[in-house]
């Protein structure tokens, strides 16, 4: 049994520490996948977050899935968290460059198409999301999956075991909540 499958089993069996072990594995797999794509194809290409996460899933789990447990939800939740961290880290790095905080000025082109051209706003959003998670974990989970991995709300619903309508309602609420939080602070 590979590591990830084993951890998914352990989570399923109520092991509280297991979830923490899942995240780094998926995180590193996502990085590796990106590196491989970079090596085999043209440089500076853009990647679809959703496709990447699904590919990681196929590579790490699917050979031995699905079986007697509901591993998909845990996997995608961890993948969303991993994507969030990668994006936030990238936004931080960008911000540091902007403020001249690093000695070696690395030439960075637009790393993340569109949204993270405004890294400050993304970091604010992330701070707000952390607060939301403390108040309403389900809504925050929907945001992570939808926003950071680009999954459709249908897919988010399937992963979290809720109907599309419910996923949509959770998203609407979370979206308003986050927007209020960010705008209330600025």
């Amino acid at each position: 049994m590979n590591d990830v499958t084993q951890i998914l089993h352990a989570i399923h069996r109520g092991d509280r520490h297991a979830a923490g072990e899942l995240l780094p594995l998926i995180y590193d797999e996502l990085r590796k996948l990106a590196a491989r794509k970079l090596a085999s194809e043209s440089p500076r290409q853009t990647l679809q977050a959703t496709a990447l996460v699904h590919e990681a899933y196929v590579r790490l789990v699917s050979g031995s899935e699905p079986q007697d447990w509901d591993g998909r939800g845990h996997f995608f939740a961890a993948a969303a968290e991993a994507m969030r961290r990668i994006l936030i880290e990238s936004a931080r790095r960008k911000l540091r460059l902007k403020h001249g905080g690093e000695f070696d000025r690395i030439e960075l082109t637009s790393n993340i198409v569109d949204a993270t051209d405004d890294p400050e706003r993304l970091l604010e959003l992330d701070t707000a999301l952390t607060k939301l998670a403390a108040e309403d974990a389900t809504a925050a989970e929907v945001v992570k999956l939808h926003f950071f991995t680009g999954m459709s709300l249908d897919e988010v619903g399937a992963v979290l075991g809720m109907s599309r309508a419910t996923a949509y309602r959770q998203w609407s609420y979370a979206r308003s909540w986050l927007k209020c939080e960010i705008e209330g602070n600025s």
Partner: peptide, 25 residues
């Protein structure tokens, strides 16, 4: 009901090099 440039365009595309360069977890 108000639009939002960030929230309404999920971060679906990202640069491969940036991903690959991310620090180990």
């Amino acid at each position: 009901l108000a639009p939002d440039s960030l929230l309404d365009s999920p971060l679906v595309e990202l640069d491969a090099s940036q991903m690959a360069d991310a620090a180990p977890f």
